[in-house]
């Protein structure tokens, strides 16, 4: 597991707590389904991975980090959204520094207030 998967791995370690409060974590990136499957199998991730290879959804959410991939491809900037069952955004984290992330505990606190 590399540092770059850290953001995802953290949510895996809190998966049980998320599911307990009825929250479904979903990871979205430009990786192909095959690549995500390999990653999930290797690292033992059990939540949903969605593949946005053309970055259409990433663009719709205004999260495109142009030419920032290793081979200069467009990728997603790190971002997290907590969406309630009506489809409304209830919490957002758009970090300004790649190394500073939302902690699972913070997200769980907000999750508990959702109806």
């Amino acid at each position: 597991m590399t540092i770059l998967q850290l953001r995802v791995s953290e949510h895996q370690s809190s998966l049980a707590k998320f599911e307990e409060v009825g929250i479904r974590p979903v990871a979205i990136s430009v990786d192909t389904p095959e690549l995500s499957r390999n990653l999930a199998e290797q690292a033992g991730y059990s939540f949903t991975f969605l593949s946005d290879p053309k970055a259409d959804v990433i663009r719709r959410y205004d999260l495109l980090h142009a030419s920032a991939g290793t081979n200069g491809q467009d990728i997603a900037r790190p971002a997290e959204f907590l969406v309630d069952s009506s489809g409304t955004v209830r919490w957002v984290n758009l970090t300004e520094n790649y190394w500073v992330r939302a902690r699972s505990d913070q997200i769980l606190e907000v999750a508990k207030t959702l109806r």
């Binding site: 998967q5 998320f18 479904r24 979903v26 979205i28």
Partner: peptide, 18 residues
């Protein structure tokens, strides 16, 4: 989720395996 209707979804956008 866990046999019940979910309370919400956490969308985690990440850079991918680069």
């Amino acid at each position: 989720v866990n046999g019940k209707a979910p309370r919400g979804v956490l969308l985690v956008f990440y850079r991918g395996y680069w």
